Computed example of a mutant assay.
Amino acid sequence: MKHRAVIKKSHLKQDFCNLLKLRNSVVILLSILVFNCSKTANISTDDINGYWEIEKVTLSNGTEKEYKYNETIDFIKINDSLIGFRKKLKPGINDTYFTSDDAEKLHIKRENDSVNMYYSTLYSEWKETVLEVSAEHLKVITKNKDVYLYKRYTPIKLDIE
């Protein structure tokens, strides 16, 4: 009889630990959902439009690369219908930019509580999912699970007279 009581206590202890683990998992999952939804739920074209430069890339294998200087930056322009383009620019001084006529078509869609950016060129199509956007940062993830963190580009201003 004593042996049975010990087994029951052991099972109760294990069940209690499993319940705690489940509760913690649910809390973490809900936190992630609330955090992600709050970062992308109220995206406007003003949040995304403008000049962006890569600050850091985190590859799917965990490797990180920080960018101190970028030779090219991205210019994104989206209209109220969430259709626009992204163009690569080479910044000059005093708000001058050098570019080609190439641009990537861009269409933004809200899907399953996510904001997706669909790009297309004559040669390729791809999607990036917005993880976070603010006045200063844009964070997206690719289908390969690479995460790109962009910061607003600050133009080079020189006082030339």
Rank of each mutant, 00 (worst) to 15 (best):
C37H: 12
G62W: 04
N70A: 08
G62D: 05
V6G: 04
N36Y: 03
D46K: 11
H107D: 13
V140R: 00
V140S: 00
V34M: 08
L82C: 06
I7D: 04
E161T: 13
V115H: 00
F98P: 01
I43T: 07
E111H: 08
G62E: 06
A41I: 14
L59A: 09
I108K: 00
K39S: 14
D95L: 09
D101C: 13
L30S: 12
N144M: 10
Y123Q: 14
L158P: 01
L20N: 11
P91Y: 03
T121F: 05
I156Q: 11
S120G: 10
E64K: 13
L30R: 14
Y119W: 10
S38N: 15
G62N: 05
G92H: 06
S44L: 13
D113R: 09
E132Q: 12
K105Q: 10
R23A: 12
F85R: 03
K143M: 11
T45K: 06
S81D: 14
K77E: 09
V6N: 07
I76D: 00
S114F: 02
F98H: 12
R152G: 02
I76K: 00
Y97I: 13
D159V: 05
V27C: 07
P91R: 02
Y123F: 14
L59Q: 08
L33Y: 10
G84D: 01
K65Y: 12
